[in-house]
């Protein structure tokens, strides 16, 4: 759905995006992750046809965005960082304007506006002035605007920035719903927990480069990241440690109270073998759980790698 090859964006002497190539399939929810200044916003603005790249080819739905931007506009919904609204309009008027701009027939507009407001839980604010909304509500109103013409592709740039924890949870739930509707979503964030629950694949950006991309498992395999096992014992965690030290697939053992956490080289069969070994040595295991590789692990690993490179 989104294809981007050798994308480069220069601002004066500064290269914001350096030869980035990525591919996002239809129905995928792609998390673009990176610290501030990594080039996420510049990449999204190019995809949204709002900034001309120095070079690079970008296609959305198979359409070249430089050659036929008007066609691409019909497919795209875009929500910028700190999204603005028309403060002098009521919420429904704000949405009606975009319904009109996207040529939704008049008779359909009211229904469409009500659906979008309901989806973002703003149906009770229909007649409120957009300028009077809280930050979280404003973000939701802009999300409703983005949804008004039911775009195939949604570009969400830091959608949760400036939101309080409650509003952030609400937004995450809405995004999960959208992901469930089969939209192709590209969402950028530097807040990792926002993304981990609903993204199907990720791109990690740093200093304008896409340093890793793919599913978490693919990235973990490339980075040689190991799964983490956490177990809780009834007593004597030191005893568990002694048993684990002798096992080949185990490394990085840490004791946190009655919890023992270690890294596992291998998959489910190796985990089962370790559990059996502990039980055979009479270690009283109360809980045994496997934590899969998370966004945080990848980010930390990349940061370590980057730090080492520097």
């Amino acid at each position: 759905m989104i294809e981007c090859r050798d994308l480069r964006v220069d601002y004066d002497n500064f290269t914001a995006v350096h030869d980035v190539s990525l591919e996002i399939g239809a129905g995928e929810v792609y998390g673009l992750i990176g610290p501030n200044g990594a080039g996420k916003t510049s990449t999204i603005r190019v995809l949204a046809t709002l900034h001309r790249p120095t070079y690079g080819e970008v296609r959305i739905g198979g359409i070249d965005i430089e050659e036929e931007p008007a066609k691409v506009h019909r497919l795209l919904g875009y929500m910028p960082d700190m999204a603005p609204v028309d403060k002098d309009l009521k919420c429904w008027e704000f949405l009606e304007m975009y319904a009109g701009a996207y040529a939704i027939p008049r008779r359909e507009r009211r229904k469409r506006i009500d659906e979008c407001l309901e989806l973002v839980s703003l149906d009770d604010k229909r007649d409120a002035m957009a300028g009077k909304l809280s930050r979280g509500m404003t973000q939701r109103l802009v999300l409703a605007k983005t949804l008004i013409m039911d775009p195939d592709v949604m570009l969400l740039d830091e959608p949760a920035s400036g939101l309080d924890p409650h509003a952030r949870i609400e937004l995450r739930e809405i995004l999960k719903t959208l992901a469930g509707h089969g939209k192709t979503v590209l969402v950028s964030s530097h807040i990792l927990t926002e993304l981990s629950e609903f993204c199907t694949s990720y791109g990690f950006m740093d200093q304008g480069r896409l340093v890793q991309h793919g599913t978490l498992d693919e990235i973990a395999a490339r980075l040689d990241l190991r799964a983490t096992i956490a177990l809780r014992v009834l007593e004597a965690p030191e005893r568990a440690r002694e048993v684990l030290v002798s096992m080949e697939a185990v490394s990085e053992i840490q004791i946190e109270g009655m919890h023992v956490v270690f890294e596992l080289a291998g998959d489910d069969p190796e985990a089962a073998q370790i559990l059996a070994g502990l039980l055979s040595e009479n270690v009283q295991v109360v809980e045994f759980s496997r934590r899969s590789v998370g966004v945080e692990n990848v980010t930390m690993s990349l940061a370590r790698k980057n730090g080492g490179a520097k």
Partner: peptide, 19 residues
Amino acid sequence: MSAPPPAGPVGNVIDNAIL
């Protein structure tokens, strides 16, 4: 949500969304 409605003519000055 319902399916997207068919797109009507855009740019009609009388039905100009910005206006």
